[in-house]
Write a protein that binds this DNA or RNA. Structure first.
Lengths: 252, 252
DNA sequence: CATAACGAACAAGTCTGATGTTTGAAAGAT
DNA sequence: ATCTTTCAAACATCAGACTTGTTCGTTATG
């Protein structure tokens, strides 16, 4: 679809300038004003921006993460490579708790034809696996956050506390040698902690951009990780520090 | 899609005869053999039948219910009317636990734009409501049954036990004045019981065909129901008996 | 009141998914 | 072993859905 590229252009332009007029966006994208209006309406529903008469202004705070629908398309190739590597680290028959986030969604897709027990922490991954006959799927309780569909809250905590897993696959918003794993959302962080507490082995996934970044909510120190899978462009000093902390770092 | 009708024809023919050849089915439906093969493949994946070279044999035991994908298309209009009536019985702001099944899925769709707290017991309904900004969605834990995607098991029981609802909307496989509400699946029945136990008010939905029928698993006596919504073709002696048992019966 | 922006409705173009046909391979029968 | 039937992949075709652009009446704003 050619519309994805246009949506990205509009999102970027609005985020960069704060607010942009419809005519301007039409000129930028080469599409008609009507199409731009429809796009703006769609983005407004996703919570990316706010319409006003004549244009739109960004709702994304600096540092806040863009909505799921956008992130899930970005760097798909890298995420797939990481996901394939993670799938290789998991043995048939294992029980796995799978974190929310776009990278973990790709991991779910990579596990679709494997004989495993999987509890995903996001409804996106649940849906990706609900048609897989080989996978024993467990759904945690909880309240799905809009868009993200990540499950959080006391029901999620209770579901995790009731079970023990061989492996936890965690996504994150930031990885740092001294600050460890961090997340944007406090509730999310609590769920990740519960997942770690219920698992014998912890594998983290993180594209290179996450390295050295620190988000609001602390999840766990780097030493809590057993392995971390990232792409080849991750900075050497960060991966080195993690290796020295006892984490098996895999770059694909 | 016009394929639904053909799938139904094939399912019926195979179920009636036990096993049917591909050529026969092609003649029956008027479609090419290739199309029949593709349909058989799809139905085999749904667990309706089993392929063998030259044809297919039924896997549906007499009395067992057909797969979700088929049931969800049958009698849609009736289900929608029943669902609209149920939606009318629920007040804004209520907390509702919503059973699995195709009729309850229509209820979920009818509640999409209402301001409510809803915990659906099937992933189909969860997905129907996950984009609804007005609805506070709660997901119960559990193991989704393939196809049906109804959540069952200890995690589901625990999720229900932890909460109290204003209203439970229950589907069923059979309603009978003396046998009460019954279900095909034992685990399902246990979940329905837990839903009843956690709710102040119980509304049952049942198309006319469910009346007087009794399935394997007992859920609750008719006296446990506060209201029952059905369509106009339900037999008078059954609805009368329920009314005498203290159930408010609504026919739409 | 005038102007610009909006959105509903329609038309044209595009894309996707379903269906049928062909054909080479595989399974089963003779 | 050979022949026949069935299968499934590949390609062609078609219909319907979706996207986009245009027009035009309506609405908001100065």
């Amino acid at each position: 679809m050619g519309s994805a590229e246009r949506l990205r252009q509009i999102t970027d332009a609005v985020r960069a300038a704060g607010s942009v007029g419809v005519a301007e966006l039409a000129a930028l994208t080469g599409a008609s004003e009507m199409t731009v209006r429809r796009d703006l309406e769609a983005l407004a529903e996703q919570g990316v921006l706010e319409r006003y008469r004549g244009g739109a202004r960004s709702l994304l705070l600096r540092g806040a993460e863009p909505p799921f629908a956008l992130r899930s398309q970005e760097g798909l190739e890298v995420k797939r490579r990481i996901a394939a590597e993670v799938a290789g680290l998991i043995a048939d028959g294992e029980s796995v708790v799978l974190d929310s986030g776009t990278t973990c969604l790709e991991v779910a897709r990579a596990l679709e034809h494997r004989r495993l027990t999987v509890m995903p922490l996001s409804l996106h991954a649940v849906n990706a696996l609900s048609g897989a006959p080989q996978v024993t799927l467990l759904v945690p309780g909880g309240r799905p956050r809009p868009g993200e569909l990540a499950l959080t809250g006391p029901l999620t905590a209770a579901s995790l506390a009731a079970l023990r897993f061989d492996t936890a696959v965690l996504g994150c918003c930031g990885v740092h040698a001294t600050d460890g794993l961090t997340a944007y959302d406090l509730d999310d962080a609590a769920v990740k902690q519960a997942a770690i507490a219920s698992s014998r082995r912890v594998i983290a996934v993180a594209e290179a951009a996450k390295f050295g970044r620190t988000a609001l909510a602390h999840v766990a120190p780097a030493t809590a990780l057993h392995a971390l899978v990232t792409d080849g462009t991750a900075p050497d000093e960060e991966t080195g520090a993690l290796t020295r902390a006892g984490v098996t770092v895999r770059q694909v």
